[in-house]
Computed example of a mutant assay.
Amino acid sequence: MSSIHPTAIVDPAARLHPSVEVGPYSIIGAHVSLGEGSRVGPHCVIDGHTTIGRDNRFYPFCSIGSDPQDKKYAGEPTRLEIGDGNTFRESCTVSTGTTQDEGVTRIGDDNWLMAYVHIAHDCRIGSHTIMANVTTLAGHVHVGDWAIIGGLTGIHQFSRVGAHAMAGFASRIAQDVPPFVMVAGNPCEAHGFNQEGLKRRGFSAERIGVVKQMYRALYRKSLTLDAAKAEIEALLGTVPDADGEVRLMLDFLANAPRGIVR
């Protein structure tokens, strides 16, 4: 049987794996599914059409699967989908999606969300990200795998943060942050690429060298964006092991209607 504290309120229709733990005074709604090994701390609310994978941890006062903070929302059965192995520290808030998008907010695997992180409706969070305290994502924000967002950072709606990118403390992100790039400030500016993070993830010196060349094309050569993209595309095949990183950058730059932080 699930370990449910006697003061918790769990709707009989909720689907909880037998190994799930629910702490004192927490509330689990009817349309919630909680996977194996997940633990819900005290005073949490998990509601909405919310599907949560295995081994997730929710610390006190989290609000997960709440209605989107969108005045156009009219009660549609939109969804929240959370993968495996995520940590939600104290007072995190995550909303379901809206019909103005795909109707779903998605969070991948192994993400570390510190206290007071807010993930609004229709956001897409990859895997292995870190968001420090009071990181705030507006609606429709996309964050790629391995991205790191510094505390007190705000991200404008429809903006994207690429894979392996990094944002410094109290940044104001109102345009797209390309993969691998480090940004900071208000207004936000680029400050190099995430070389140390790539080393820690096992990138070879040759692959890191290609990432450095892409960064130089975008930020150090005074090229137009189209010229920078052409120079980046020319890197394909020069280090075959790095072609994935080159394609990742090209795909990201091909779909940047808000422009990039530059």
Rank of each mutant, 00 (worst) to 15 (best):
S63T: 10
M1W: 01
V177W: 07
T105C: 07
G85V: 06
S171P: 04
L236C: 03
C44L: 03
T105R: 11
D122C: 14
D243F: 04
F58Y: 01
Q213W: 01
I28E: 02
T78W: 01
A165L: 09
L218E: 05
E189G: 07
A138F: 13
V117Y: 07
L80Q: 10
S63Q: 14
N186P: 02
T51P: 00
H118T: 08
G37R: 07
R160C: 08
G126M: 10
M214Q: 12
A165N: 09
D122A: 13
Y59F: 15
D243T: 02
K71N: 01
E76H: 09
D109Q: 14
K229D: 01
N56E: 00
A234M: 04
L137F: 15
G75V: 13
S66Y: 02
I208W: 02
S159M: 08
R258K: 14
G37M: 04
G154Q: 12
I260C: 04
G259P: 09
A184F: 12
R15D: 02
Q69D: 07
G48R: 09
V261W: 11
P179L: 03
A228Q: 09
Y73E: 02
Q175W: 04
P6A: 06
L225S: 08
R262H: 11
T129M: 11
S33M: 08
S2I: 05
Q157T: 05
A132D: 05
P187D: 03
P77A: 06
Q175S: 06
G83R: 08
G185W: 09
A254R: 15
E196S: 08
D241R: 10
A167M: 14
E231G: 05
N186L: 00
H17L: 05
M131R: 00
V177P: 04
L223E: 12
E102C: 06
V211Q: 04
I149F: 00
I82H: 00
R39Q: 10
P68T: 12
Q157W: 11
Y59R: 10
S159L: 03
Y59T: 00
H121W: 12
W112M: 01
A242N: 03
L236R: 13
H118F: 06
K71A: 08
I46M: 06
G35L: 08
D241V: 06
A254M: 10
T50H: 11
D101T: 07
V141D: 07
Q69V: 10
A227V: 04
V40Q: 04
N255D: 15
V22K: 06
V117M: 11
E245P: 01
K212R: 15
V183G: 02
K72E: 06
H128M: 08
I119Y: 02
L80Y: 09
G192N: 11
S26D: 03
T98I: 10
A184T: 14
T51Q: 13
G126R: 13
R89A: 02
K212Q: 14
I173P: 02
Y215C: 07
S171V: 09
I28L: 11
G108S: 07
H5N: 12
M114K: 11
K72H: 12
A14F: 06
G154W: 13
M182F: 09
G53S: 09
G65S: 07
H17D: 15
G53V: 06
H140I: 07
H43A: 00
F203Q: 05
A132W: 00
G126H: 13
H17G: 03
I148S: 03
R54V: 03
A165D: 03
I155N: 02
S91H: 11
S171L: 07
D84S: 03
M114I: 09
